[in-house]
Design a protein around this nucleic acid. Structure first.
Lengths: 148, 148
DNA sequence: TTTACTGCAAATTCTTTGCAACAAC
DNA sequence: GTTGTTGCAAAGAATTTGCAGTAAA
């Protein structure tokens, strides 16, 4: 999906709810969709301070991340402990994560067969899935090599 | 596994590391293994205040939960947001979770085929799994019925 | 103009820590 | 006795919130 298309989607989302498109929101939105990595609120706030553009406070960073998550433009995940980590989802297929506990690297992976078994298990219990988090924690290839 | 056996295992674990079996540790350990539900640090601390036994401070609750998690007597999981939730694992087979976002209920489930596919995916990427978290969030059968 | 948004700083929430008194071993 | 443990209160880290000023629509 093109950046412009996604941006129009965001504008529409705001309009439908009588929310305002402020310079801060536009700047955060663009920054979030400019990266394909996972980032924390604090990281995003650092970008806002280091890079040029309208001033954005820490509070606005948190509030806008909430807004984007509610609108399903981004998704948050708990990569272990402490802070939440975000990634944009619109125009980006669903995937699961492997988190390296040594270097912090997050790899994406996906297995359609697992998704199917998971739906089946939920259905059997009358459970309606809204979303899911499937995360493997361990050591990535390069860290495993180093560790021996 | 019998409570007494598990308790001996804990004593051994402490002895091997020159750690001490204090009344606080014993009390927390027993309480944790007396419940099969998931609980937060704050909940456990509330039990410590409400029920009879040696006084246990909040700090000791946190420190002992850490200790038990390191020893793999219990496991922590992030049931959504905010606080960590614990459950005892010794004498309790591995399982995944379905968390109802309406009532907070946590159901346990397990599918050996998913575990196998997951190991396979990790192996393919040279990733060594230490642990994993697989959580479905949504609506449980009874809440789904109420909501219509 | 109206109503939402922002920045700021203070407040919250969960968890960790420094330290002196205490108690297993 | 030694050395690990506890309780307390203060510190931390991440996130939220109240409020008065600001600015989209």
């Amino acid at each position: 999906m093109k950046q412009a298309t996604i941006e129009r989607r965001f504008e529409q989302y705001l309009r439908e709810r009588s929310l305002r498109l402020t310079p801060q929101r536009r700047r955060i939105f663009e920054r979030v969709f400019a990266t394909h990595d996972h980032f924390s609120a604090e990281t995003l706030y650092a970008w806002m301070r280091e890079e040029d553009g309208p001033k954005v406070s820490r509070a606005t960073v948190y509030r806008t991340l909430d807004l984007l998550a509610k609108g399903e433009f981004i998704e948050s995940l708990d990569a272990g402990r402490g802070e939440l980590v975000y990634e944009h989802t619109l125009g980006h297929a669903h995937h699961d994560h492997m988190v390296c506990t040594a270097c912090g690297r997050i790899e994406e992976w996906h297995d359609e067969r697992i998704e199917a078994l998971q739906s089946e298990a939920a259905k059997r219990r009358g459970f309606v899935i809204e979303r899911h988090e499937h995360r493997l924690m361990g050591t990535c290839r390069s860290c495993a090599r180093k560790e021996g």
